[in-house]
Design a protein around this nucleic acid. Structure first.
Lengths: 165, 165
DNA sequence: ATTTGCGTTAGAGCGCGCTCAAAGTCCTAG
DNA sequence: CTAGGACTTTGAGCGCGCTCTAACGCAAAT
């Protein structure tokens, strides 16, 4: 994913501190969003290729005005939405789901409950994924610490198996 | 990914206990691997489509013998390798990387250092991903708890922005 | 006057990881 | 004898999320 860089950057900015709700809180309005940005500026800021920004727009995820030359002009709301979109993509929400979410947003206040439901479900997805990864990490650690060349067994109890891998 | 089910199953088996090295240790030889299995049995056991098992074999990730009818016969080592492969896929290692890893295994003992290096690097990848997801979780939680319909801002301080989202 | 540079569009192409289709073989049960 | 079912192979197809190409527009700099 092209957005990998974003999160990497963000994590570096956070240092080794545990991500907290407060830290997140600060992230969005970290270095106030200018009232208007070009595509290059937004791309730079989000560490996304400009191509991807255009792609998101074509996909209906964000609406962007044009100036007299027909060039895109991103306002603060568009940028904030892109921050949101990027975060959701990065945490595993599909384009299709995001398109649905955005449709709901555009449909007005009455869709708030459904939006909340989507967020809660996505939250569950993230938690599930965290558990999977935690388990995988333990497995890989185990393999590393018990000297882990073989694939045949994660449990190096019978060294004779090494040959079989 | 088709392998999602596997991990789901595994996590359910673990219940809410924290995944530990010991738990992982138990996973591989949980319910001893039979000395020989058909493709259907392996597919069932790993919760992978048989198609995917054939695909992995074609990709060179595992070698499987045939019986007199030309049907695949998976021995315990093959099954263990598939468990390993599945775990690695699930934790984000690409097919390409796994192919390289398996090439190293097949190249013998002298490649152990490089295999270790791959495992350690992958470990880092998992840790990075865990941090990303943890951060995303905090962000989504924040959005949920602060009443989260709008996309424009993760920080619902100016309710007027709701309209802009 | 022309080159450089940043932007635009529609649409094609790509890498990944499966996933399936077609056509055939073999064994068993009715 | 035949029908069903599980398997085999090769190769094509698909969904996703970008990513890039081609052809063009406009404007500031040389």
């Amino acid at each position: 994913m092209a957005t990998d860089d974003l999160m990497t950057k963000v994590l570096e900015a956070l240092g080794d501190a545990q991500p907290t709700v407060e830290a997140i809180h600060d992230l969005t309005d970290l270095a106030e969003v200018p009232s208007s940005m070009t595509i290059a500026e937004v791309a730079d800021r989000l560490a996304l290729p400009a191509h991807t920004l255009r792609y998101y727009e074509r996909a209906g995820l964000v609406t962007v005005a044009r100036d007299s030359q027909g060039h895109r002009v991103y306002d603060a709301d568009a940028v904030r939405r892109l921050v949101f979109l990027t975060r959701m993509r990065l945490s595993g929400m599909s384009m299709r789901e995001l398109q649905h979410y955005i449709e709901l947003v555009d449909a007005g206040e009455r869709t708030v409950p459904e939006r909340m439901a989507m967020l809660v479900e996505h939250r569950d997805t993230i938690v599930r994924r965290l558990r999977e990864l935690t388990l995988s990490l333990a497995a890989v650690d185990y393999k590393i610490t018990t000297y882990g060349g073989a694939t045949g067994s994660d449990v190096e109890r019978s060294p004779s198996r090494e040959a079989a891998a």
